[in-house]
Design a binder for these strands. Structure first.
Length: 619
RNA sequence: GGCGGGGUAGCUCAGUUGGUUAGAGCGACGGUCUCAUAAUCCGUAGGUCGAGAGUUCGAAUCUCUCCCCCGCUACCA
C-alpha cells in the first residue's frame, strides 16, 4: 500500500479588482507563496490558491466611470495582478476569479444547499444603504445623511432580501473557537474579534441584493444577486471543485487562509458559520496579516504614497522584494516601508552577507582548485566550527517556525549560518593555507565546507527567494531545479559529481551605492515629507484635543480605506470635528502645507479658527 | 467610552517563573585581513529600562496611580 502524501492547502485573499496591485497585496501573497513552496519541498502535496473578487456594486460603478463593462474592467485588472505574480515567482496552483463559470455554479449550489437546510430566510428590508461600502446602516448610524465610515451620502432603499441565519450559530461558533484556540491568528486579532463581534452576539446577514446587478444570480425567484461576500468566500471551495471535485476531497479543509486584517471579521464569523450551515468542515486556521505603512503614513491612493511592486522589482529584483517583505515585517503585524530600511536590508543582508559569501567562495574554488569543487577528504570533510549556526536553522526548527508563519524568524536563523560562514572564512584564512602546499588538505576542507554552506543555503532559501536559490544552485554546477529537491538534503552531506565545476557569475545583489547628496535629498525627501506629515498631523490632533477639550471628537479622516479618494480631492487631508450639535464637519487641509514646517502654524490656526466658529454658531 | 497591545541604547526591538556589571541587529566611530560586491572580521559605543509611589534583602521584570502611543470597536437619538 503506497503511502498517501500529506496534503497542504493554503490560500491568499481574493483581491478586489477595484484596485491595482500594490505592495500590500504582494505582502500576503508572497507569504502564502513562501509557505506553499516550503511545504512542497518538505514533502507535502500542496494546493496554493489566489485569485480575484470581481462582483459587486463598486466594481460596476468603477467600470461605468471608465466606460467599460464590469467584466472588461476585471479582465484588465486581473492581468495586472497576474503580471506581478509571475514576476514575483508566485506558484499558485490556480488563479480563481469569482466570474469563473465553475465558481458561479458552486456559489449557487452552496446557496441552495444552505437554503435547503433552512438557514436562509426571506425578509423585507427597508433602510439606509451606503452604496460605495455596500453596507446596510441603522438609522442611528447615519450621521447627517452620511455614512459614518466613509462620510458619503447614503440612500434609502427598500427591498426583499434573503438572510443567512448566522445568529443560530452563536453557540456553535463560540464552542468551536474555544476548542480550536489556533483557529484565528494572531491572538491579538482574535481577542479583538471575539470581544467586539462574537460575544455581543452574531446578527443575521442579508445575502442577496435586488438592486445590484453585477453579481451571481441568486437561485431564487426574482433577479436578485448574491451578496458579494457570500459569493467571495465560497471561492476557497469552488476552486477545488466543490462539491464533487477530486481536489476538494483531497485538500479541504484548508490548512490556512492567509488574509488581511481588514477582512478577518468575515473569515472568522460568516465563513465558518456558512460552512456549519452547509455541514462542511471548517478551515484549520485563518491568519490575518497587517498593513504595510509608508513612512509615518498609512498607504493610500489619495496621498500618492502607494508603492507599486513592479517599480521596486525593476530596481531591486523580485527576490529582494520577497526577502524584504518576509524578513523586515513580522507576518501578522503592521510594518513600515521606507527606502532606507529596504536599502539597509539589501546592502546589509543580501549584498554584504549573502552575495559576498557566494562571490568569495566561488572565486576561491576557481583560484585554488581550478573551479572544481574539492574532493571532501575522508573524515571531517565538513568543519564542525559551523555546527551551532547550522543547527539554528535546522529543518526541525524551521518547520515549527513555518507552522507559525514566522518567516522573519526563520530567515534570521538561516542568516546565522551565512554570517558564521563569513566569519569562518576570515578565521581559517584559506588564502594563507593556499600558500603552503602541506596544508592542502586543510584548504580542501575549508573550501568544501563553504561550498556546503552555499548548497544548504540554496535549498533553505528556495521557498523565500526562489530565483536567487536557483542561481546559487547553478553557480555550484548543478543543472536541475533546486525547488525539486527536498529539505531532507539540508541534513545530509551534499552529493557532487566528481570534479563538479562551479560557475562564477556576476554578483546577485550588487550593492546599492549611496546616492549623491543632491539625489538623496530629493528621493529621501519624499519619505521624509510623508513621515513629517504624519508627525505633524498627530501633533495637531493632540493640541486640538487639549485646546478644545474635545478628546475623542476630532481627528484626521482615516486614509486606510481606499474609498478615501472619493471623498477628498488628491492632495488634501480631511480633518473632522464633531460639533456640539453632533454633526461631523470636515475641514480640508492642503497636503502641501503640512510639508512646510513654516506653514504648519498657519494650518493649526486655521483649523482652530474654523472649529471655534462652528462651536460658536452651534451655541 | 469599552476591550486589547505597548512605552528599554540614534533607529528596530529581545529581555524566561523578580537576583551578580540590562542584551541583539542596524547605524556611527576606530582597527584588521585581502579570497570577495570599498565587502569580511575585531573592538568601542556608557541607555535614570515613560513618570511617581509601594511590596521585597533585591525589580525593566510584581502592585497602585498618572502621562503618552497604537489597534479593534462603540457612541455622543
Amino acid at each position: 500500500m503506497a503511502l498517501e502524501k500529506k496534503t497542504f492547502y493554503v490560500t491568499t485573499p481574493i483581491y478586489y479588482v477595484n484596485d491595482v496591485p500594490h505592495i500590500g497585496h504582494a505582502y500576503s501573497t508572497v507569504g502564502a507563496d513562501a509557505l506553499a513552496r516550503f511545504k512542497r519541498m518538505d514533502g507535502y502535496e500542496v494546493f496554493f490558491l489566489t485569485g480575484t473578487d470581481e462582483h459587486g456594486q463598486k466594481i460596476a460603478k468603477t467600470a461605468k466611470e471608465k466606460g467599460l463593462e464590469p467584466k472588461q474592467l476585471a479582465d484588465q485588472v486581473v492581468e495586472r495582478f497576474k503580471e506581478v505574480w509571475v514576476r514575483l515567482g508566485i506558484t499558485n496552483d490556480r488563479f480563481i476569479r469569482t466570474t469563473d463559470e465553475d465558481h458561479r455554479k458552486a456559489a449557487q449550489a452552496f446557496f441552495k444547499k444552505v437554503m435547503d437546510t433552512g438557514y436562509i430566510y426571506k425578509a423585507d428590508y427597508e433602510g439606509w444603504y451606503c452604496l460605495p461600502d455596500e453596507k446596510f446602516l441603522l438609522d442611528s448610524e447615519v450621521i447627517d445623511g452620511k455614512c459614518p465610515d466613509c462620510g458619503r451620502p447614503v440612500e434609502r432603499i427598500k427591498e426583499e432580501n434573503y438572510f443567512f441565519a448566522m445568529s443560530k450559530f452563536q453557540t456553535q461558533l463560540e464552542k468551536y473557537l474555544a476548542d480550536h484556540p489556533d483557529f484565528i491568528q494572531p491572538d491579538s486579532r482574535k481577542n479583538e474579534l471575539v470581544n467586539n463581534f462574537i460575544k455581543p452576539g452574531l446578527a443575521d446577514v442579508s445575502i442577496t441584493r435586488s438592486t445590484v446587478k453585477w453579481g451571481i444570480p441568486a437561485p431564487v425567484d426574482g433577479n436578485a444577486t448574491i451578496y458579494v461576500w457570500f459569493d467571495a468566500l465560497i471561492n476557497y471551495i469552488s476552486a477545488l471543485g466543490w462539491p464533487d471535485g477530486e481536489n476538494y476531497k483531497k485538500f479541504w479543509p484548508a490548512d490556512v487562509h492567509v488574509i488581511g486584517k481588514d477582512i478577518l471579521r468575515f473569515h472568522a464569523t460568516i465563513w465558518p458559520t456558512m460552512l456549519m450551515a452547509a455541514g462542511l468542515p471548517l478551515p484549520k486556521r485563518v491568519f490575518g496579516t497587517g498593513y504595510i505603512n509608508m513612512g509615518g503614513e498609512k498607504m493610500s491612493k489619495s496621498l500618492g504614497n502607494v508603492v507599486n511592486p513592479m517599480n521596486l522589482m525593476d530596481t531591486y529584483g523580485p527576490d529582494a522584494l520577497r526577502y524584504y517583505l518576509l524578513r523586515e515585517v513580522v507576518f501578522g503585524f503592521d510594518g513600515t516601508y521606507t527606502e532606507e530600511t529596504f536599502e539597509g536590508r539589501f546592502n546589509g543582508d543580501l549584498a554584504n552577507d549573502l552575495g559576498n559569501l557566494i562571490s568569495r567562495t566561488l572565486t576561491m574554488v576557481e583560484k585554488y582548485f581550478g573551479g572544481s569543487i574539492p574532493e571532501p577528504s575522508k573524515k571531517e570533510s565538513f568543519d564542525s566550527n559551523l555546527d551551532i549556526a547550522w543547527k539554528m536553522g535546522s529543518l526541525e526548527h524551521a518547520r515549527e517556525l513555518m507552522d507559525k508563519l514566522a518567516f522573519d524568524v526563520v530567515l534570521g536563523q538561516y542568516w546565522e549560518l551565512i554570517k558564521a560562514a563569513n566569519k569562518y572564512i576570515q578565521d581559517s584564512a584559506p588564502w594563507n593555507l593556499a600558500k603552503d602546499e602541506s596544508k592542502k588538505e586543510e584548504l580542501q576542507k575549508v573550501i568544501f565546507t563553504m561550498v556546503e554552506v552555499l548548497r544548504v543555503t540554496a535549498l533553505r532559501l528556495s521557498p523565500f527567494m526562489p530565483f536567487t536559490a536557483q542561481a546559487i544552485w547553478e553557480q555550484l554546477g548543478f543543472t536541475d531545479k533546486v525547488e525539486k529537491h527536498s529539505f531532507s538534503e539540508t541534513e545530509t552531506a551534499g552529493v557532487y559529481q566528481k570534479g563538479q565545476k562551479v560557475k562564477v557569475g556576476t554578483p546577485l545583489f550588487p550593492r546599492i551605492e549611496k546616492k549623491k547628496e543632491g539625489e538623496k535629498a530629493e528621493v529621501g525627501g519624499q519619505d521624509a515629507i510623508v513621515a513629517a506629515q504624519g508627525n505633524l498631523k498627530k501633533k495637531i490632533t493632540q493640541h486640538f484635543k487639549t485646546a478644545l477639550n474635545l478628546k475623542p471628537e476630532c481627528g484626521w479622516l482615516a486614509s486606510s480605506s481606499l474609498e478615501y479618494p472619493v471623498l477628498l480631492a488628491q492632495g488634501k487631508y480631511g480633518f473632522y470635528v464633531r460639533t456640539p450639535d453632533k454633526k461631523r464637519v470636515i475641514i480640508e487641509v492642503e497636503q502641501q502645507k503640512l510639508a512646510d514646517s513654516k506653514a504648519v502654524d498657519g494650518v493649526y490656526d486655521h483649523l482652530l479658527a474654523e472649529t471655534q466658529k462652528l462651536f460658536t454658531n452651534a451655541g
